[in-house]
Amino acid sequence: MTTKSDYIVDLAKRSLRTDRRKEDEFRKIEIQKGVIEKAEGSALVRIGSTQVMAGVKMEVKAPFEDTPNEGVLIVGAELSPMASPKFRSGPPGEDAVELARVVDRSIRESHSIDVEKLCITEKEKVWIVNVDIYMLDDGGNLLDAGAIAAVSALLDARMPKYEDGKVIYAEKTKTKVPLTCKPVAISHVKIGDYLFVDPLSEEEEASTAKLTVGTKDNGNICALQKSGVDPFTLKQLDQMFEKSIELGKQIRKLL
């Protein structure tokens, strides 16, 4: 524990935070879509000083054998060393892999894309939708920012022209990616015995446990991930579920 972490833990006992936010208050969220012309869809998302970029690239390939009439959605994320002195270059570490998989699950398992609409010819050709998330500046809560960026980029995406078995990337059609809902992930950290949303990176360091809750437009929960060494009580879980559904609704309006 560092002196800074001690200070954050001390403040938490009085429900206070270093940037004077309330325990369930997000920093300012800014979303800019269409920032990369070469991508089929893209978005730059800022939450406070955290900056994340996501882009959509589409390609045509053969479907998986067990799903011959379904397209494929793949979400990837990189914790680049550009974003923080904590990250190293090289193969992604366990935190990077966990982050990418949680974002991937919250979008894919929520069935937020109608994959059957991505089929061109059954058993032969389907659209593969690649969403890549790149972390530019880690001011904390990269996961929630990454999920917002991914959904924003998907909302911004237009299918490229497909003609004579070739994708013409320079020509975008007016067809959108068949999105059926907008999943939102909310991360909570436990500092001492207290819970806080949208943690700063210094709060993440001072925390002993974290829970990410993905919710859908209809209020269903579509992803959960508990990390950190400290367990949660059932009462704390209830509190975080309720809060996530409520905050998810507010953030969804910004998308």
Binding site: I36, K38, A39, S42, M53, G55, V56, K57, E59, G76, E78, S80, P81, S89, P91, N130, D132, Y134, Y169, A170
Partner: peptide, 17 residues
């Protein structure tokens, strides 16, 4: 020095790494 092209920076997607 590390140079990287983001996966969505070109027409054909670039594999990360």
């Amino acid at each position: 020095a590390h140079y990287v092209m983001l996966p969505f920076s070109t027409d054909d997607r670039i594999r990360p790494g």
